[in-house]
């Protein structure tokens, strides 16, 4: 039945007819591949094809006038008729209704911003960056090459015959290789990458109120909703069961990060009694420096202080702050942070 209707379809469509004339070989090819096969497999295969669907009829084409139709409309269309509505569920990559990427404003996961250019960020770009470049730059006169750097992996001393063909020895102190320090140029001046603020709540197992208060305070001081972390393993000494919520944390980037660090250095740290600064030994030797604040210091954050009565004073948590920088060693990271007003004391390691 479908094969009988084919000629009528081509006759009714002038545009398709023209195509047919222009590319006769293409059409004949298609005919050979599809139509012959269909005649053979007519019982098993559905013979209908998109090529065989008739186009719009003449009356339909004549009646199609969207502008006139929209003018005839008395009230505007509801937004659901023309707005894209992202799906609430992601149903896998093969589903026809795909959610837009989180960077798209219509996405459900979209986070708008930044809404301001923080003062610390401006100062970094206008002042600190060039100063840091000056301090960290190593000049090699033209025509000279920097000296050869030492081997990263140690070799075996050859005292034993079994040392032959062994892989090289790992560095002292563990198998992890420290990051290489690239020469600092205007392209890779160390900058702030992100700040992690987290708080392990000891009492979370017995009373979840502590966790709630910690989350509220964390949100108040960082402007970001806190995430609850669950214990990975059961540790009897810490009263931890696997899967039980035990801590809250926040990852700050961009505007929030600069606001938070500026607040900590300008307002919070100077109010700590007998404060020396951050230990010079702090850091993971790869450019991330961390420190902690006790509950009494967390209580002096301006956002907590203004609303201090809202929080049960015994449940105010202590927080750990880890500042991740793009510097690859702690020395550079410390220089960056001290330019931003973070004081350091004691012997500076690495």
């Amino acid at each position: 039945m479908a094969s009988q209707r084919v000629p009528s379809v081509f006759q009714s469509l002038p545009l398709r007819k023209r195509d047919f004339h222009n590319f006769p070989c293409l059409c004949s090819c298609r005919k050979a591949s599809t139509f012959n096969g269909m005649t053979e497999l007519s019982e098993d295969v559905d013979p209908s094809s998109s090529m065989q669907i008739p186009g719009p009829s003449e009356e339909h084409l004549a009646s199609f006038d969207p502008i006139a139709r929209s003018k005839r409309r008395k009230r505007p269309l509801p937004s659901s008729r023309y707005k894209f509505r992202p799906p609430k569920y992601y149903r896998g990559p093969l589903h026809p209704h795909q959610p837009p990427p989180p960077t798209a404003p219509e996405s459900r996961e979209f986070i708008p911003g930044p809404f301001s250019l923080p003062r610390l960020q401006q100062t970094y770009h206008s002042t600190f960056a060039s100063d840091l470049l000056t301090l960290m730059y190593t000049h090699h006169p033209p025509g000279t090459l920097p000296g050869p750097s030492g081997p990263r992996l140690r070799s075996w001393d050859g005292s034993s015959p079994y040392h032959k063909n062994r892989p090289l020895r790992p560095p002292r102190g563990g198998p992890a290789l420290p990051l290489l320090r690239r020469p600092i140029t205007f392209r890779n001046i160390p900058r702030l990458e992100k700040i992690h603020v987290h708080s392990f709540v000891k009492e979370a197992g017995s009373d979840s109120a502590h966790l709630h208060v910690a989350g509220m305070i964390m949100q108040a001081i960082t402007n970001v909703r806190a995430t609850v972390f669950r214990a990975k393993h059961t540790i009897a000494n810490f009263n931890l069961r696997k899967g039980s919520p035990c801590s809250v944390g926040v990852e700050l980037r961009g505007e929030d990060m600069y606001n938070f660090l500026a607040k900590v250095t300008e307002v919070v740290m100077p109010r700590i009694k007998d404060y020396q600064g951050i230990s010079g030994k702090s850091g993971d030797s790869n450019g991330d420096i961390g420190w902690g604040f006790g509950p009494d210091t967390v209580g002096t954050f301006p956002e907590v202080e203004i609303n201090y009565d809202a929080y049960p004073s015994k449940m105010i948590p202590a927080v750990h702050i880890v500042v991740c920088t793009t510097a690859t060693n702690d020395k550079d990271a410390r220089l960056l942070l001290s330019s931003m007003g973070v004081p350091f004391y004691g012997k500076h390691m690495n």
């Binding site: 809404f115 301001s116 923080p118 003062r119 949100q219 108040a220 001081i221 402007n223 505007e255 929030d256 606001n259 500026a262 607040k263 250095t265 300008e266 307002v267 740290m269 100077p270 109010r271 404060y275 020396q276 600064g277 301006p302 956002e303 203004i306 609303n307 007003g341 004081p343």
Partner: peptide, 25 residues
């Protein structure tokens, strides 16, 4: 003075002790 975004609803925060009047800084 400078402005920043914060969850605190107070429009102005006046600090009595900060980096400008602390010996460490």
């Amino acid at each position: 003075t400078y402005t920043h975004r914060t969850t605190s609803p107070a429009p102005v925060y006046t600090s009595t002790k900060d980096t400008r009047n602390t010996l460490l800084w």
